[in-house]
Structure formats: structure tokens, C-alpha cells
């Protein structure tokens, strides 16, 4: 008879990693037709997408002002790369955003994993922190920007603060759930083999919670990129969010879309990087994308 443990986490509900679509486990070739390749369709789809975009951007006069064509975006990107904008070229802005993301992400991980594990491990700790966590959870990180600037000035600190707040939540939630959802019989194995409390943590808790924590990190890094853009859009003199915001101010859709493209690429790449790292560490997990 299995125990149904109260898995209702901090405010219940676990964060699920928005997994890449090609990772649906066990689906390969099952639910109707992977007969024939989808690649030709992909090509058709992409060609159509860019063709329509180009056509709309260049032929519809009203759209032209608000919808740069793909070629204009390319030109804009090249321009940002070559000439300085607000004192920095594109790599400089990328670096500015990346440093913020990395700093915020690192702090969120350093705080979030112990907090989540602590909440799962100790009911007292959970009782103490859950109410505050529940209040902070639905608060969009950007809502903090005003007080953050008041408290910390207009330097790097408030931006990093916003990123920490945003990415902290998936880290906490997934660490919490990762530890809580471990089958208790796993611990019985170690107990039967003469293990003490430390052996249980070392041999079961740590490895068993790892995939879930990793999935949390993957969500967190995406959230971090979103947060940095938001923070930079509100107050900054550098970074990709700044480029997007300036594009809006000078009514240059090419610049806006350039910023969006770069952000999307970076978010995508860092998520891939985290996933690759996870695959490395959690060799036993064959469907990491879907935790």
C-alpha cells in the first residue's frame, strides 16, 4: 500500500519545463505517422514565413513603418555590429546583458536550491517561509523595478535584483518538488543497508532530486533572459532591452526586431547549454526534456 504524501508544494502546482517539442517521450512514431519526413514541410513553412514577411513589409505602406522586412533587420543587425550605439557595438550590448543574466541566475541558484530543499526537508522551515513565498510568487519581477531603483540606485544592482526575483521561483519550486516527490522506499533501501541520515541524503536525496532541479534551472535561465530585457527596457543605458527600447523611441522597427532576434537566440542557446549539461550529469535520464 503506497502512501499518498501531501505533495501540495509551496502554494501547490509545480513548474513544468517548457520542453522542446521534439522531446515528447515515447511518442516517436507512435501517435500517427512519423511516416515520411517532416523536413520538406519545414522548408516550405520557413520560406513562406519569410516571403510573406518580406512582401508585407515592403508592399504594404502602413506596415512598412512598423514591420521591417527581413532584409532590413539583417541590415540593422549588421549596422549595430559595426557601429557603436550608445557607446557600445552589438557584442558589447550582448555582453552587458549576459553579465547581468549570469550574475542574477547564479544568485538565484545559490539561494533557490537551498531554500527549496529546506522547504521540502523541514516542515518547520516550510511553515516559516511558505506564506512569504506564496505572496511573492505571483508578483511579476518587473513590479519590483521601482523599489529596486529606489533602494539600489540605477546601476547594475536593481537589474540583477529583478533577474534574481524572476528566476528564483522556478528554482525553488523545482528543488522543492524534486525532493518531495522521491519515493520513500528509496530511503528504506539505504536504511536496510545500514545507512544513516547523511547516507540517505548523499545516496538518495541528492541524485534523485537532481533532474528536477536541473529542469528548474532550465526554466530559470529562460526567465532570466526575459527579466533582463524587461529591466533594461525600464532603465538602462546598455544591453539588448535597451536596444529594443531605443528602437521604439526612434521608431525603428528594424532595430527592435534585431534586439528580439538576438535575445531569442541567446535564450535558446543558453537553454540548450543547460540541457546539454544536464544530459551530461544525469546520464540515467533519457527524457530530461520533459520533467
Amino acid at each position: 500500500m503506497a502512501t499518498t504524501r501531501n505533495a501540495a508544494g509551496p502554494c501547490a502546482g509545480s513548474a513544468k519545463a517548457p520542453s522542446p517539442l521534439n522531446e515528447a517521450p515515447g511518442a516517436r512514431g507512435r501517435a500517427r505517422g512519423l511516416r515520411g519526413s517532416e523536413y520538406p514541410l519545414h522548408v516550405v513553412s520557413l520560406v513562406l514565413f519569410f516571403a510573406i514577411w518580406q512582401w508585407a513589409g515592403s508592399r504594404i505602406p502602413e506596415a512598412g513603418a512598423a514591420l521591417a522586412t527581413p532584409t532590413q533587420v539583417m541590415a540593422s543587425l549588421a549596422d549595430l555590429y559595426r557601429t557603436q550605439f550608445a557607446g557600445l557595438t552589438l557584442p558589447g550590448h550582448i555582453w552587458a546583458s549576459a553579465v547581468r543574466v549570469l550574475a542574477g541566475f547564479a544568485i538565484a541558484v545559490a539561494l533557490g536550491i537551498p531554500a527549496g530543499l529546506g522547504m521540502a526537508y523541514s516542515p518547520v522551515f516550510r511553515a516559516l517561509f511558505n506564506p512569504i513565498f506564496c505572496l511573492l510568487k505571483p508578483m511579476p519581477p518587473l513590479a519590483w523595478i521601482s523599489v529596486a531603483i529606489l533602494w539600489m540606485g540605477i546601476g547594475e544592482a536593481p537589474k540583477i535584483f529583478i533577474i534574481v526575483l524572476g528566476s528564483l521561483i522556478p528554482v525553488i519550486l523545482n528543488s522543492y518538488n524534486g525532493l518531495l516527490l522521491i519515493d520513500e522506499e528509496m530511503y528504506d533501501v539505504v536504511r536496510m543497508l545500514g545507512g544513516n541520515r547523511w547516507d540517505r541524503i548523499r545516496l538518495v536525496s541528492a541524485p534523485a532530486a537532481l533532474p528536477s532541479i536541473g529542469a528548474g534551472l532550465q526554466i530559470a535561465i529562460s526567465v532570466a533572459w526575459g527579466s533582463v530585457v524587461a529591466a533594461e527596457m525600464v532603465s538602462s543605458r546598455s544591453g539588448l532591452g535597451f536596444i529594443i527600447m531605443q528602437g521604439m523611441k526612434i521608431s525603428d522597427p528594424g532595430m527592435i526586431i534585431s534586439g528580439m532576434v538576438v535575445i531569442a537566440l541567446l535564450a535558446f542557446l543558453s537553454s540548450l547549454l543547460v540541457e546539454a549539461l544536464l544530459r551530461r550529469v544525469c546520464v540515467w535520464q533519457h527524457d530530461i526534456g520533459n520533467l
Binding site: L21, R35, L41, S45, F49, A66, S222
Partner: peptide, 25 residues
């Protein structure tokens, strides 16, 4: 399959863009 083949590339392209970044456009 057709829907998947046609829409997935576009979806995958748009997905990593943070929603906030859409605001100016």
C-alpha cells in the same frame, strides 16, 4: 503531420522571444 510540419519551425522560432520584448512592436 502537416500542421506539425508547417507550424513547428515558426513556433520554435517565436518561442524563445521573451513576451516583454514584444511590447515595442
Amino acid at each position: 503531420r502537416t500542421v506539425r510540419g508547417l507550424l513547428r519551425p515558426i513556433f520554435e522560432m517565436i518561442r524563445p522571444i521573451p513576451p516583454v520584448a514584444w511590447i515595442p512592436l
